[in-house]
Design a protein around this nucleic acid. Sequence first.
DNA 1: TCTGGGGTCCTAGGACCC
DNA 2: TCTGGGGTCCTAGGACCC
Length: 420
Amino acid sequence: MIALIDCNNFYCSCERVFNPGLLGRALIVLSNNDGCAISRSEEAKELGIQMAQPAFMIDELIKKEEVNVFSSNYTLYDDMSRRVMQVIKELVPRAEVYSVDEIFADLSGMKYKDLEELGSEIKDMVGRCTGIPVTVGIAPTKTLAKMANRYAKKNRPGEGVFSADTKELVEMLLSATKIGDVWGIGKQFEALLSGKGFVTALDLVNRAPEEWIRKEMSVVGQRLFHELKGINCIPWEETTKVRKNICTSRSFGKLITRKNEVAQSIAKFTSSCGEKLRKEKTCARRVHVFLQTNPHRPQDPQYFQSITLELEMATNLTTLLLKHAMKALDMIFREGYNYQKAGVMMLDLIPQKEVQLGLFETLTYEKDQKLMEKVDELNKVFGKDVVRFGVQDYGQNWKLKQGNLSGAYTTRLHQVIKAS
DNA sequence: TCTGGGGTCCTAGGACCC
DNA sequence: TCTGGGGTCCTAGGACCC
């Protein structure tokens, strides 16, 4: 049996831990640039605020209903996530972190325990240790565990636990779940399946021919089909996966037109990618740069462009990455547009220790490597970007809007040092 | 009128997830 | 005025090989 443990309205719950006055009140957390609502408390959901709804569309509602609004504080959420996961890992034999607010737990070694009881224990322990409310779904496969979790949220809000551990319960779960609410079925597949008359997950399991699924939905659909029938097809990820791509991109706080300002942003994104690469001990073989105008402004001429440059050798040194990113920008930048967003991606990542040095690279490479080590050390102690490359500049005309940011409650060491 | 039978590697784009 | 930012996997099709 597999459990999926999911934090309820995670970002909102994090804010509440450090501001208990928010308990029982409508509360939302906004995306970067204070753009859209990306986490909503139950009270906010009841007011009709939708997932990913643009903030400016609900200004009046927010005022009228006194909704508490927060800018996203990812440093806080990441740290709280780490704590929640730690507590759970200590309670189960094997666990796999699936996202910032979800973790799968393998309960196969615990067959003599009442699983629903175990779920309650996990939920209570996480609550006591971190203050974060969670929901636990238990079932024979990952896909069914996701479904059980969803069912618990909807139908067992008090207990926060649901275990589908008999054939009858699994069948009940399947029949209670609409096809579009199955993990792995998005808009396209939902349209395809409901068009064929499959309304619930049980319809699919009972009536869909496997060959048809294979043909229309590829092996992805076939796997899903088996998972619903209780046959495990999604492998257990033993260790945290090494990422294959790394991306840093942002919308600007306001539209920008000047090349040097776009260049500053690209430099900053590149430097951030470099940091992420070095942290994961991987190197990129290709650098991808993109920029775009605001598609929501039909009055503006539109421009979407991107380019991928190959590196002579894989690297994670910001010095080398910057050279390529700047060259890429030169190649795609056009005057006369209002740019709204840009980004940098690192592609084809390989482990740092597998990098082949080019014949003539060795000297500067070692020098740059030492430089980046020191930069990372300093920034870790004194705060993000305290030491940075000149191209990143200080202007930041384009920087994020963060009107309602909460404190660095759990990670403020460097701020204390800076202040002193 | 008739035009082989294997392969590999790469990329773009589509589907999905949080 | 104001609309997020990350990721994954799979497939089809093109370019190339013998």
